[in-house]
Design a protein around this nucleic acid. Structure first.
Length: 463
RNA sequence: GUCCCCAUCGUCUAGAGGCCUAGGACACAACCCUUUCACGGUUGGUACCGGGGUUCGAAUCCCCGUGGGGACGCCA
């Protein structure tokens, strides 16, 4: 049974990189008929917040990435960690270290100055025949893992291939703080072990933690899971995404009018491929997904492609569903949705031409709220030669049958009577009714408005 | 600095030694459609980081270089 997990730390929102990691872990479990587990890594009490937990869950829900087990909270598993910690201490797999953070800092600076990799020097590490210093009074010790000193830790990364790191490169990491709370690398190991995780799919930044985790797993006599490290996602500008540069919550995409299936489809193709396939459902994705076709190199986020996918999914989407999504956006703008025209009718006419839900709301607001005119646009199209035809049209509007074909016939007869070409009348009509020079077919737009509104907006015409 | 990883069009990518005079998608350009703008359709341009090997043959394998990234916490 394949078991994967997504293990974010609740120190902020779910961003695009985390979302992709979650997506791949989820899809891998789905593909194999396994289980997908959500685990909240909240051992950093100072930075974890319940709001962040909620933000992550909201993000997962919006994307529709449902977990089969959890969410598990590490803070609720303290007893278990402490049990393992005591066992390791008893087994000699871990030891107390009295070196203070200040001493460590000094040590690291010296090493850096000498061009060495900064690391703990092993002062308190017990060795056969070695006499340990006397613990200084008043110093609370941390617990360090006794890492092997020689040999190599190797694993076959399912994305990056064979990776081997010499144990000589690794120092004895702190697995419990002075207050006895366990640290990340330790909790992860115990959790992955206890939860029977078979495949750890996570970000690239954890590659360097992997050999340490494998060593702890081995010290515990636990089975080592398979690892797959996903490369990072760069911003649109090729720069690293960070809190102060470009990293936004997935919920921001909701605000920006993206459909979750568009974001998901986009993310699926960021670092993974299935031949030339670009547009596919999540059902299809789960069927196809494998670790063999994940690119080991970093990927740059491309908003334009996301926009294209979003436009595609909006065109495809059921109009009633879109209306339900657009309605709150209009309400948020303080726009009252009237019965005529129906929101569905507006969306039916506009969904072919927009690339996000907010543009749909923009379109709808033309029909529900007062419009403003750009004088330059108005002047450009409201030409003297168009005026008589417009006046004719305004007159004809009073008793023309209220459907596109009849309105189209009226427009044709108006231009015919004045020897005009279609755009001469269609353009000023567009602008007068919508305030815009770009709209769907003008007869369809006219027909969408209630007759009275058209009369009212045309009444502004100079006689 | 040390260790680890990465490297095909502007971007996402296909590519597991001959199928590659390198394919698809986004973006871009032109044309068609047209009642404006989109949509849609057709066409086009642009890429294997450099150098050495291995091989009859290399985008694909190896080495070196260069460039980029990551990690070196009592953060996760």
């Amino acid at each position: 049974m394949i078991r994967t997990r997504f293990a974010p730390s609740p120190t902020g929102f779910l961003h695009i990189g985390g979302a992709r990691t979650a997506l791949f872990s989820w899809a891998f479990a789905r593909h194999h008929g396994g289980k997908f587990i959500l685990r909240i890594e909240d051992t950093d009490v100072a930075r974890s917040t319940p709001e962040a937990v909620q933000a992550i869950i909201d993000g997962m829900n919006w994307l529709g990435l449902a977990h089969d087990e959890g969410p598990f909270y590490q803070m609720q598993r303290m007893d278990r960690y402490k049990e393992v910690l005591h066992k390791m201490l008893a087994d000699g797999a871990a030891y107390y270290c009295y070196t203070t953070p200040e001493e460590l800092e000094r040590m690291r600076e010296e090493q850096r100055a000498k061009g060495m990799k900064p690391r703990y020097d092993g002062t308190w590490r017990p060795e056969p025949g070695k006499t340990l210093p006397t613990p200084p009074a008043g110093v609370q010790p941390v617990i360090r893992f006794k890492n092997p000193t020689d040999g190599v830790v190797a694993w076959n990364d399912l994305v990056k291939g064979q990776i081997a790191i010499a144990n000589a490169e690794l120092d004895d990491l702190v697995i419990a703080r002075t207050d006895f709370t366990p640290t990340y690398n330790f909790c992860v190991v115990v959790d992955d072990w206890d939860m029977g995780i078979t495949h750890v799919i996570r970000g690239d930044d954890h590659v360097n933690n992997t050999p340490r985790q494998i060593n702890i797993l081995k010290a515990l006599g636990a089975e080592v899971p398979q690892y797959a490290h996903l490369s990072m996602i760069l911003g649109d500008d090729g720069q690293k995404l960070s809190k102060r540069h470009g990293a936004v919550s997935v919920m921001q995409y909701d605000d920006d009018g993206y459909l979750p299936e568009a974001v998901l489809n986009y993310l699926a193709r960021l670092g993974w491929s299935h031949g030339d396939d670009e547009v596919f459902s999540m059902t299809q994705f789960c069927e196809w997904f494998d670790l063999d076709h994940i690119t080991p190199s970093a990927a740059q986020f491309n908003t334009e492609k996301l926009n294209w996918l979003n436009a595609h999914y909006i065109k495809q989407a059921d109009t009633a569903r879109l209306a339900a999504l657009v309605r709150p956006r209009l309400e948020a703008r303080g726009i009252a949705i009237s019965a005529s025209p129906s929101l569905e009718a507006i969306i039916g006419l506009y969904k072919e031409r927009v690339s996000n839900l907010n543009e749909l709301a923009d379109a709808a607001s033309i029909f529900y709220a007062d419009i403003t005119f750009d004088p330059a646009v108005l002047n450009q199209h409201l030409t003297p030669e168009a005026l008589p035809a417009l006046v004719d049209f305004a007159t004809g509007v009073r008793d023309v049958a209220w459907e596109p074909a009849a309105i189209n016939a009226l427009i044709k007869s108006c231009i015919g009577a004045h020897g005009l070409k279609m755009p001469k009348l269609a353009m000023p009509l567009r602008v007068l009714l919508t305030g815009q020079a770009q709209t769907p077919s003008v007869d369809a737009v006219v027909a969408l408005f209630p007759r009275e509104t058209v009369l009212k907006r045309l009444a502004a015409l100079p006689a």
